[in-house]
Amino acid sequence: MVLVLIEHDDGAAIDTTLEAATIARDVAAQEDEPLEAVGFGTVPGDVADELGEYGVDTVFAVTHDGLTDYAPVAWAKSVRELIDDREPSAVIAPGTDRGGETFAHLGAIADLPLAANVIEVDVGGDEGYELTRQRWGGSLLEDARIDAEPNLLTIVPHEVTAEPATEAGEATLESYTPELADEDFIVQVDRREESDTEGVPIDQARVVVGGGRGVGSAEDFDQLEELADLLNGAVGSSRAAVNEGWRPHDDQIGQTGNKIAPELYIPAGISGAVQHWVGCKGSENVLAINTDPEAAIIGKADYAVIADLHEVVPEINRILKEKHR
């Protein structure tokens, strides 16, 4: 069988989990084996139903007295125990902070190689899996081979399209209690703190308005803030705007910042260096505002406006406010 690690929030599987499940189902089909899933804490019935639609037969819900919150080593050891019980040929996780961290531990603990950032898998013949993985934020691809028992893979977020199985099945939910020691909980989330910034978090926003060097100052982001508010979206920025001190790093979109996948991204005054593009290429639509028709971002966007953002953005805001009235 093939095993996929799942993450769920508010009674639903998160998008990146469904993307990983889509690849995992493909690997399972190539192997001609069933697909099973492992999640942590109480896995709601709705999540199991959703996974059933993605071709999962069985969902193991890991529960343990010590597992009061996310604990990477405890998660990795639980998956390791399940590997020993179920002997999967591949174990796949979304390449999220938690998926990636858990699998790095799993690789170390189980003494196995780990292929990260995978986008495509061919289970091939006797020499292991041939896979394609992303490097440099996706501006470079690597064809690679992994040959272990099992093969550990993490899937790049927002690159693969999540697709339910053609024939929806039903997943059975099973409780699974691993043997864990106190030392497996040395690293565990101690507490959470809410961000002071109001509004929709950038990774959840349907619309993101991005500002770059062309914005010119911290104050000039006000117009972009207003546009984002009117669209119930969030503001992001390029690395250049962060380096200028106009925006906090938490807003940064790019290879070393947020990787966003909204329905619409509106980069304004952003030239579109590859390091920025790799952070927003998951967007369904890109509408670029730039004074330079030759800017790289214009070549990559779906829609373009050749204009000074300081002139056109207030005008867009004015029309939107009229409509709101």
């Binding site: 690597e142 690679a144 992994i146 070549g299 829609y303 406006v305 204009a307």
Partner: peptide
């Protein structure tokens, strides 16, 4: 994990639909 070879991804170079110029 053993590298076989590198490749540069195909890029969508289809031009953007220009909605207009100026405000």
């Amino acid at each position: 994990v053993e590298m076989i070879e590198l490749e540069t991804p195909e890029r969508d170079d289809s031009p953007a639909e220009v909605l207009g110029e100026g405000p």
